[in-house]
């Protein structure tokens, strides 16, 4: 303990910050979304936000976990039994679904597809949820780009300008 080998020199932190900021200027701004919910209202909100991010030239990374991942099982989006609204807003469900229909709100998965057409939207499935539910990438909609772990997501989220948990 008499050798202070691990003590940082004062100039080290500022060098790190400078490197960080110059790197930030080179890359696109990023939006990270943890999509945990599988109800239509929240899937729609997440899809609209991803679309906005893509339109405004951000790189959008969506991390699907739990109910959010189940919602992207092949065909689940059009299965009437999966068209649920968040429990805490259940009493508003008929009103919301009617408003969606009347105002021509597109199915959320269609919005996600469009977002991927106009910009960079990466969709990753949570590896832990995949293992838990015995799913493989082939069981999911083709907009899912791959499987990611929590550390991989955190590595991206820590570099993000906007991070959302939905």
């Amino acid at each position: 303990m008499n050798e202070p080998a691990n003590i940082r020199m004062p100039e080290q932190p500022s060098t790190t910050i400078e490197e960080g900021s110059s790197r930030q200027q080179d890359r696109k701004q990023r939006m990270s979304i943890i999509l945990f919910s599988g109800t239509v209202d929240k899937l729609t909100a997440a899809s609209i936000l991803a679309t906005g991010g893509a339109a405004m030239d951000m790189q959008v990374n969506i991390f699907l976990t739990f109910w959010g991942l189940l919602a992207l099982k092949k065909g689940a989006w059009k299965d009437p039994n999966q068209q649920k609204i968040s429990g805490e807003f259940a009493e508003y469900a008929p009103m919301v679904m009617e408003a969606f229909r009347k105002k021509n709100v597109k199915p959320w998965i269609e919005m996600l597809r469009e977002a991927r057409e106009v910009g960079e939207v990466n969709v990753y499935a949570c590896g832990m949820t995949m293992d838990l539910l015995g799913l493989s990438l082939e069981d999911l909609e083709d907009i899912v780009d791959g499987v990611q772990g929590v550390a991989g997501f955190v590595a991206e989220a820590r570099e993000s300008d906007i991070t959302l948990f939905i």
Binding site: I48, G52, A55, K106, E114, V118
Partner: peptide, 17 residues
Amino acid sequence: RGSACPGPLMELIRAMK
């Protein structure tokens, strides 16, 4: 007209492309 957010913006982006 009649298209909800973000529909009109997406249609514009497509047309601009």
